[in-house]
Design a protein around this nucleic acid. Structure first.
Lengths: 209, 209, 209, 209
DNA sequence: CATGAATGAGGCTTCATTCAT
DNA sequence: GATGAATGAAGCCTCATTCAT
């Protein structure tokens, strides 16, 4: 009755915590943290309300678990694209930009989770943990991009006076912000804007360089 | 008619709706939309709970009123800076950047309102109105910045192949995103990053222009 | 519309906290603390569930309020009987005994409250407050009876070697215990037993005094 | 068959119902009936939660089993002391008093069980069974003490007009009540009070016998 | 108009009990 | 038999909203 991968045939008796987190993510994304009730999540996961509490102490905790999983996934995706095999710094920046903004179609559906997390960092009971996680996440993200920029400078590809940290901060922010604008405006294409902007940034706006 | 402290009964018999909105903004910013209760707002405004309902149909409506006022103010500030008397496009962009990111110290305290609004656009009962307002706001904002960029191009100040719309989108987004990062990270200076970035953007990153 | 005593004609708009306490006492007595639900109390008091929380922070608090009122009333009744105008100590003891055990018929209905309070002193969240109140109550009660006994000794009415404190403790306890037995056993007459016992105590059991 | 620690698998494969009852008694005493959850009892007994239901139909039933065991033990102790070999009635009463009140130090820890049982007699689902058991228990107890008193009268040791039933009721009640007072008040010594009182009762309070 | 006491729908959470293993 | 994961009924409490004054 038990497959090699440990799954049971039919309705498994043991609930997968990961499945709860996914169901919760789906519901929180759809209705927001406060309008989502525990019963929604249980129903979405196909389990009883009480079972949620076997795995998560409270709604807040479950939400934080969703957040942690989300951050981990986001981090992995960004990391993977940054460590692309491209050799020029410019190409690698383009690769990151394309991956982040290009994933918009799939991300769209759960994008509102991001907004929920940001708001949670402002007012959740776990606000400090949220804020700390975001702070660390952004720092790491900026450091990675700054690293690429720094390599470009070192390689003589970018101007030596490039303010790598500031550019990195804006690039990281820009990717966030393009998705945000895309979320508000269906006709906005974040990938195109991102790519066009990056090219402009590389070559500069001013005629005299 | 004169209070015990000798001042005239300064609070007018007539409740100021604007005062309610301000009090609500303060509370929503402090505790978030859901954790703020109507009693909080009434207390903050120094009026009775029931009075709130004389001016606003519901908590949702009051929140939306706060949002509208917020958008209006934001728009005015941005507009004012964009219409600065500076004559070069580059200078005008720098002026906008400085105004937006430079206002961080004062804005900090109520910044979380922005996060609340974004989240509301995802899950509030008025989500569509929030989304529409943000969409329109961003469009207008982008158009203004694109206009400045276009003037720079027309004036021969910026390269003719400048993708004005994309650059405008990123600039607008970058200002948002820098504030967001500053909110998460006290040691992050959005004004410095914004200014340094803008300079780099104007001159380009690549050595060969 | 408002009477001189401040009561309103018809259904009063202002809830009487005392009425809530009485309703709660009735329900707690009938079903016990845990089986009584807040809805029961609200219904008994003829008010909404939420209104209970306007006057009492929690179910525990309401229960404690019932307890406090109960203790106050009990103390008053006992005090009044002890301060009876009888002049001999023996007569005054008989008066107390008669009052306490004689009130059984009326007390019967709410006697189980006592049992609830005793149990609460063991396991309620407010156990320490319950215990402290009982401790103080018993001390005071014992002191009062010991005082009567002491006066009897001083007046030469009682034997000089009378262990007033111990006798007081047992008398106080006996009145409690007779009611307890009466509560278990309908055919048990606490007043008769109390009176007969007191007489025996006064004259002694042993033939040789 | 031998555990890792080298001991034989000492806990028998077969669960001991008596052990469950003891564990339950411990938990009910510590936290009260309602605050004790089945998981507490199972953990205390070192068995699985489900196993409790192999031996007891419900939490109520288990509680009643604890009660029955408690009553049986109490009865045995009292009986044993009453059937002491002492020959004078007075000495036998003193023996009972000493045994009951003298056991306070050990009893203290589980005394709150008594309070739980009394409360259960008021509001448990099995209230009638509790009440009946208490009624029978008290009757038997009173009868035993009355018997001793009667023998004292018959032997010419006690006055012939001694109201044996009433005195028995109060003595039985007094022992209960002294423990109750001791439970509320650590500085109260039930054994000393009980003994001093009994002596006074035997000789009488009044000077003229 | 302004008020705040009253309300009850609704959410989170607990826990006795069941039952597949 | 023994287990403990799963369950859902049920209870406490909150709070947006109403409405009598």
């Amino acid at each position: 009755m038990t497959g090699e991968d440990g799954t049971l045939a039919g309705r498994s008796r043991k609930v997968e915590p990961a499945k709860i987190v996914e169901s919760a993510a789906r519901m929180f994304s759809r209705k927001g943290f406060f309008k989502t009730i525990m019963a929604d999540i249980a129903a979405e996961a196909g389990i009883g309300k009480g079972t949620l509490y076997e795995y998560f102490r409270s709604k807040d905790d479950l939400f934080f678990a969703v957040f942690e999983q989300f951050m981990e996934k986001s981090g992995q995706a960004a990391l993977a694209s940054i460590r692309s095999s491209e050799n020029s710094a410019a190409k690698r920046l383009r690769a990151v930009s394309d991956v982040v903004t290009g994933s918009w179609p799939e991300m769209k559906e759960i994008y509102s989770l991001t907004l929920e997390f940001w708001a949670a960092a402002a007012s959740s009971r776990h606000r400090d943990r949220f804020k700390a996680a975001f702070k660390a996440g952004y720092r790491q993200y900026r450091a990675l991009v700054a690293d690429v920029l720094g390599q470009g400078v070192a390689a003589g590809e970018f101007r030596p006076d490039t303010p790598v940290d500031s550019v990195a901060a804006v690039l990281v922010g820009a990717w966030d912000a393009l998705l945000l604008q895309a979320w508000f405006d269906d006709s906005f294409d974040p990938a195109a804007s991102g790519r066009a902007f990056l090219d402009a940034l590389l070559r500069g706006l001013c005629v005299d360089g």
